[in-house]
Simulated assay, not measured.
Amino acid sequence: MNILVTGGAGYIGSHTVLSLLNNDFDVIVFDNLSNSSIESIRRVEKLTDKKVTFVKGDIQDKAALAELFCAHNIDAVIHFAALKAVGESSTMPLAYYQNNVNGSLCLLEVMATFKVKHFIFSSSATVYGGDNNVPYIETMPLGEASSPYGASKVMVERMLNDVAKADSDFRAISLRYFNPIGAHESGQIGEAPQGVPNNLLPYIAQVAVGKRKSLQVFGDDYQTLDGTCERDYLHVMDLAEGHVAALKWLNKQRGFTGVEAFNLGTGKALSVLSIIRAFEQVSQQNIRYEIGARRSGDLAAFWANADKANRLLGWQATRSLEQMIEDTWRWQVNNPEGYL
């Protein structure tokens, strides 16, 4: 099968491309490289000894997408291409709606033109909003998102449901995942943000390696065990394998039409301070941090109920927090400047 992976050169995308290749799928990556590097694809090819077809382009460019679909007989699409920083989305909301919502719309329109009916969407736990109780479960309604980033994911999920209602042949999966961290165990691919990291683990790792002076913790007055935000952290390779499991499940379904949502998480929440302490223990480095004000769009705590993914997809997160941090640290030490 030919699988189109939009945003496939990014952090989660590159690890998923590696997992797809290891499961004998043929992969076409479409990425504008705005926050990623072609080097990640080169390294994936070396790790798997398989080739990836790479096309540089933006998902809002329908002509480029149409040219790609003309050139390749695409069986399914895994859609990662999106802006993804919660805090940044509150200061740049229009950019998030333009890229995440309009980009997804353009992609779905071109898919409809070329009659490609299988779609896996990189969604987020933020679609549950702040009103649903934790742990989040897929039967809960889509909530009032706490940030433009979350709102953009809600909008795309609603779009997918409407497309499925209008086209009985369209089948999609929304993978609502929580906080991916870690890197491939080889230390060859990992999270390589351009500029200041927006996510916790790469920032901690850059402090540990001496690239940054200290970490700012956004608030210590939440109603949590130590006052800092609590999140469900899972290994990026567990997450990548979840996408492959979802694709295989989708391919086997005969009577299913519409959209299915699956949570991908560990079912446990860990605080920012506990992650810092665990990183110090694994790396044997002192992590300097400062407590700052709360960040716009952050919820106090959320974590997954992933029973549905375990039951239907045969998937569960298996890698420990220690392995997540060991792999992050190996990646950072081996690649202090990321892919540069």
Results as ranks from 00 to 15, higher is better:
202 P>S: 14
254 R>T: 12
98 Q>F: 07
118 H>V: 06
102 N>Y: 09
42 R>M: 05
208 A>H: 02
111 M>I: 09
5 V>I: 15
261 A>L: 07
251 N>G: 08
153 K>G: 08
192 A>L: 04
313 L>N: 08
104 S>Y: 07
25 F>Y: 15
111 M>T: 09
328 T>N: 05
117 K>R: 12
156 V>G: 01
272 V>F: 03
158 R>A: 07
326 E>W: 03
281 Q>P: 00
130 G>R: 08
262 F>V: 07
197 P>D: 09
71 A>D: 10
138 E>G: 07
159 M>N: 01
241 E>F: 00
238 D>A: 11
84 K>L: 08
88 E>Y: 10
32 N>H: 07
156 V>I: 11
279 F>M: 04
267 G>L: 12
200 L>Q: 10
16 T>H: 04
303 W>V: 13
12 I>C: 12
111 M>Y: 09
305 N>A: 12
102 N>S: 03
26 D>G: 00
148 P>N: 12
121 F>K: 02
313 L>R: 08
261 A>N: 08
149 Y>N: 05
17 V>H: 09
274 S>N: 12
255 G>R: 04
235 H>E: 01
201 L>R: 01
73 N>A: 13
234 L>Q: 13
315 W>N: 06
287 I>L: 04
229 C>K: 09
102 N>E: 09
55 V>E: 01
305 N>S: 14
3 I>W: 01
239 L>I: 09
262 F>R: 03
237 M>I: 14
50 K>R: 14
34 S>Y: 04
22 N>W: 02
108 L>I: 15
184 H>Y: 07
197 P>V: 15
263 N>C: 06
206 Q>A: 07
83 L>C: 02
296 S>T: 15
280 E>I: 10
119 F>H: 08
259 V>S: 05
289 Y>I: 10
247 L>K: 01
298 D>Y: 13
160 L>Y: 02
318 T>I: 15
255 G>F: 03
337 E>F: 14
23 N>W: 00
314 G>W: 07
92 M>H: 15
262 F>A: 05
290 E>M: 10
286 N>R: 11
255 G>Q: 07
301 A>R: 11
23 N>H: 09
226 D>M: 06
8 G>T: 12
8 G>D: 05
9 A>F: 08
50 K>V: 09
145 A>Q: 01
18 L>G: 00
64 A>C: 03
51 K>L: 04
271 S>H: 12
234 L>M: 15
64 A>L: 08
237 M>F: 01
166 A>D: 07
157 E>W: 00
301 A>G: 00
257 T>C: 10
323 Q>R: 09
56 K>C: 07
28 I>V: 15
76 A>Q: 00
179 N>L: 13
304 A>H: 06
242 G>W: 05
185 E>S: 13
100 N>V: 13
26 D>R: 02
225 L>D: 14
95 A>W: 02
22 N>C: 04
207 V>A: 05
296 S>R: 13
49 D>S: 14
298 D>L: 14
141 P>N: 15
282 V>N: 03
145 A>C: 02
24 D>H: 05
